[in-house]
Amino acid sequence: MSPDLILPHGDILPVFASRPVWCGRRSTVIGQARIGAQAWLGDDSVIRADGQEVILGDRFWLGHRSTVHIATLDLGTRVGDRVSVGRNAVVHACTVGSDVVIEDEAVILDGATVGDRIVLEAGATVFPRASLPSGFVYAGTPARPVRPISLDEVTDRAERLREAAGEGGAEAPSDPLEVEESVFVARTASLRGRILLGENATVLFSCALDAEVGPIVVGARSNIQDNTVIRTRGEGVVIGRETTIAHNVRMADCRIGARSLIGIGCTLAPGTVVADDVMVAAGATTDPGQLLEGGHLWGGRPARIIGALDDGKRALMARIVDGYVSHGRDFRALQDGLS
Rank of each mutant, 00 (worst) to 15 (best):
V146Y: 07
L109V: 04
L120R: 08
G135P: 09
D156W: 05
I149L: 07
D110S: 12
P128L: 06
D104E: 07
A164E: 13
R117S: 02
R129N: 14
S98E: 11
D116Y: 03
V85T: 02
T141E: 08
T113R: 15
S131K: 15
V119F: 02
I102W: 04
D110I: 02
G97L: 10
A158G: 11
G140N: 14
R144L: 15
Y138C: 10
G115Q: 10
E163G: 06
S134Q: 13
L109T: 03
R160L: 10
A122D: 07
A112R: 08
V90S: 12
V126Y: 03
E163L: 11
A158L: 08
E163A: 15
V96P: 00
D152E: 15
H92G: 00
G115F: 05
G123I: 02
I149S: 06
H92V: 01
D156F: 00
V126T: 10
A165Y: 05
L132N: 02
R129A: 12
V100C: 09
A165V: 00
R162A: 11
P142K: 11
A165W: 07
S150M: 05
R147D: 09
V146I: 15
E103R: 14
V100E: 09
H92W: 02
D110G: 11
E105W: 08
L120W: 03
N88G: 07
V96D: 00
V119H: 02
V137T: 13
D110V: 03
R160E: 11
G97R: 10
D116P: 11
V96R: 01
V154K: 12
V101R: 10
T141M: 15
A93D: 01
T113N: 10
I118H: 09
E121Y: 09
E121H: 15
V101K: 06
A143E: 05
R144Q: 15
V96G: 00
A143R: 11
V100F: 03
A124T: 07
A124E: 06
F127S: 14
V146H: 13
R162D: 00
R147H: 06
V119N: 01
P145I: 02
L161F: 03
A130W: 09
G97S: 09
R117Y: 00
V85H: 06
V126N: 04
V100T: 09
A106I: 05
R162E: 07
I118K: 14
E121W: 05
E105G: 08
V96W: 00
V154C: 08
G166K: 11
P142E: 12
V137S: 13
P148C: 07
V107F: 03
Y138S: 13
V154L: 09
V126Q: 12
G111Q: 13
R144D: 10
P148R: 14
R157C: 03
S150H: 08
R160I: 00
A112E: 03
G86P: 02
G97K: 08
